[in-house]
Nucleic acid binder design. Structure first.
Lengths: 116, 116
DNA sequence: CGTATGCGCAACCAAAGGTTGCCTGTTGCT
DNA sequence: AGCAACAGGCAACCTTTGGTTGCGCATACG
């Protein structure tokens, strides 16, 4: 029942800065390390490293344009990541519900038994 | 529109080992650092540290029993984490769909324009 | 044509994940 | 009661990762 997840994808999305970067890239449709760093609490170099991580995970890709490197979200890969996220969420949710059911069953059998 | 997420919760769940630990604790209903480490590719001490992280995030709690410390998932807090997971997933999904819609609109307007 | 700007590289630092080694306390068996 | 076995906590150490500063190079632009 355990969901097979791509750890690299997950850890790419696990970092709060990278999540905000994806957010910014999605809303703006693209951006460079410099423009992103202006709206984030870290330096351009830190952003550049994060972009490298996201790039290696396939979540973004860069298109050089003169002296700039414009990054944009790879929609297909990003959709895969979102799907994994929700499938893990769904699996855990189902497990929680099953446990709650079992707990209730135990409670019932305990009620129907005489005092210890 | 950006979802407010508890970074500590996320990073607790972001680690692949911790995800597997939560899985094990959920399926078994509880466990100690030693029993968990037998089923994980890391040492007992590493597991103990992870349990510390999960504990501080409120996702698990320990009940001492003799020389053992039995950890179990805190269902309420865990449910909160799952909810955050799915809400981020939903937000991203919605954003993806909106972008796809816009892309199609641009495509249409380009088709209806004469060649450049 | 020179200056400003965007980027990559290197050195360096702190925190996180992981390991080994050791010590303490509980258990359980003679 | 006494001792071996076992679970767990602590400390030292290593490596990776996220972050910084400083620098050099290339491209754009007045």
């Amino acid at each position: 029942m355990s969901v097979i997840v791509d750890d690299e994808l997950w850890s790419a999305v696990g970092d709060p800065i990278r999540r905000r970067m994806l957010d910014l890239l999605l809303t703006d449709g693209g951006g460079t390390a410099t423009t992103l760093s202006e709206r984030l609490p870290v330096t351009r170099q830190a952003v550049a490293k994060h972009l490298g991580v996201l790039d290696r995970a396939g979540l973004v890709h860069a298109t050089p344009s003169g002296r700039e490197r414009i990054y944009a979200v790879d929609e297909a890969q990003f959709a895969r990541a979102v799907a994994q996220l929700s499938s893990v969420g769904a699996a855990w949710d189902a497990r929680l519900r099953r446990i709650k059911r079992i707990a209730e069953a135990i409670q019932l059998s305990r009620d129907s038994r005489p005092e210890t």
